[in-house]
Design a protein around this nucleic acid. Structure first.
Length: 440
RNA sequence: GGACGGGUGGGUGAGUGGCUAAAACCAGCAGACUGUAAAUCUGCCGCUCCUUGCGGGCUACGGAGGUUCGAAUCCUCCCCCGUCCA
């Protein structure tokens, strides 16, 4: 868990300026900072912690490092003694947040949402302190609304205001911009011509920010967190709170984490992500593969090193005192220790050294047991062990010299192995994929 | 409801009857180099079978039928998307 500077004693709070500095780290924007400061002062005075929430739609079963950025910020509030509310948008997930979507997305079913919500919580509590986290579901209030309530709500906001939103603008104008971070491979000048399948906007999407605003109303939040792409929604929440006669919450947005490719937003569908349930080994490998440049934003958004320390590291790398690889190793170590503990992080680091720097066989590769059989081609083996998606691909890997057995390169496509007797060997396909095959 | 335009491989996008498993670019994968980074270079990049060959078979250009020795390309119907009009 994050060994952060803030310790348990919730009251009295730390000095407001100190709190602010801690909260500001890595933040993209605080709206408005004076508001947040005033709220912190108020809470310091009254001894009443702030109510800080993060709403998440459980649209996928797994969370990855990209999601953790903002969860970590919630943790920071928790560290400072404020009340962290983790809101599961089980109702809103069934509408679908239009943010960053280029078209209306298919709504999730109740069952999917429930299943996802469950796995989310397990994972989220690797970051948040379960004992101090208030978990809420927005179906609690949204599910009970009557159509009358909905009309009332809808009357509180202007269509023009909703349409101001960038996603809608773009979708209405057609030829929506590539998603964040140049999401579509920009072949030169393709912009205006790629309008072919112009997406539509369904009415219910307009309601999304309004409905989720009721979360803020119900929770009587002082602060809401979100990724920068949520800014629009968060601002609507703020206004609707006022409409309902509540003080407007402060907003703190966090930058979107760039994925392993160094270009696009980290996302599962792009495959440029590190899942938080992945093995220490896998995480280590993935984290070491990021570019030197990207490493700094990971330091900022995924670790508790404070700003000054990060600046110093950066300077040391720049002047050649610290090797970039060592800086990256430390980064990977720190992140993994957060999720798996230090022992596991140690092991992952050592293993990484062994395998990639010293080019030795991994201490323990994932094992795959096979029943005895006759002579089998290596290409077939690579395929049935899932090291390649097809036999053709497996064969290609061999032709390209990517396949090794116990460290010896296989260069004959037709090579066969005798699997009729018990045996154990290490099969490698490509740089990163190892499998210990055990024939029983 | 009408007029017009369009639906090609993971993405963009060429291709208007055979030379097209389908240009080019992007993404991806592998090898070399390295710090398993980035950059760069080289190769690969539908599936499958074997005698691994510039080999055979199968599948693929929204769907279904048809014309043809031969279709992503022509015809018919259908579905979907967009623009404009109502």
């Amino acid at each position: 868990m994050s060994e952060s500077q803030a310790q348990s004693s919730p009251h009295p709070f730390k000095p407001v300026d100190e709190q602010l500095a801690y909260l500001r780290k890595g933040a993209a924007e605080i709206i408005r900072e004076e508001d947040l400061k005033a709220k912190l002062e108020q809470s310091a005075k009254t001894g009443k912690p702030l109510r800080v929430y993060l709403g998440v739609d459980p649209t996928a079963p797994d969370i990855h490092l990209g999601h953790t950025v903002v969860i970590r910020k919630l943790r920071h509030f928790q560290d400072l003694g404020h009340t962290a509310i983790f809101l599961i948008g089980d109702f809103s997930a069934m509408i679908g947040d239009p943010t960053g979507q280029s078209e209306t997305r298919p709504p999730l079913t109740r069952a999917q949402v429930d299943a996802n919500a469950k796995t989310y919580l397990d994972q989220v509590f690797k970051i948040l302190d379960p004992a101090k986290t208030e978990v809420r579901y927005n179906s609690e209030w949204l599910g009970k609304m009557s159509s009358y309530d909905i009309i009332q709500l809808a009357a509180k906001y202007q269509l023009a205001r909703i349409l101001e939103r960038e996603d809608f603008q773009a979708r209405l104008a057609g030829g929506w911009k590539g998603r964040l971070f140049g999401g579509h491979s920009a072949s030169a000048g393709a912009d205006s011509s790629s309008v072919r399948s112009r997406p539509s906007i369904a009415i219910h999407e307009l309601l999304y920010p309004l409905l989720t605003a009721l979360d803020a109303v119900h929770l009587q939040s002082d602060v809401e967190l979100g990724a920068t792409e949520q800014k629009f929604n968060l601002l609507v929440h703020r206004e609707i709170q006022r409409e309902y006669g509540l003080p407007a919450q402060a907003i703190l947005t966090m930058p979107i984490l760039v994925g392993l490719d160094g270009v696009k937003k980290m996302s599962k569908s792009l495959g440029n992500y590190v899942g938080i349930t992945e093995s220490p080994q896998q995480m280590f490998g993935k984290l070491m593969s990021i570019s030197d440049e990207l490493m700094w934003s990971y330091y900022e958004l995924l670790t508790d090193f404070n700003e000054r320390v990060i600046v110093r590291l950066k300077e040391e790398v720049r002047t050649g005192v610290l090797h970039p690889m060592d800086a990256k190793t430390q980064l990977a170590y720190t992140i993994i220790a957060n999720f798996h503990g230090e022992a596991a992080a140690d092991a992952a680091r050592d293993e990484f050294q062994r395998v990639f720097r010293n080019r030795q066989a991994p201490e323990e590769a994932p094992q795959k047991k096979l029943a005895r059989s006759g002579p089998t081609r290596v290409s077939t083996l690579v395929f049935i062990c899932d090291l390649a998606p097809s036999r053709a691909e497996a064969e290609r890997l061999i032709k390209q010299g990517a396949v090794e057995i116990d460290g010896a390169r296989v260069d004959d496509v037709k090579k066969e192995l005798d699997l009729s007797k018990p045996a154990s060997f290490l099969l490698r396909a490509g740089k990163k994929k190892f499998l210990r095959i055990v024939v029983e």
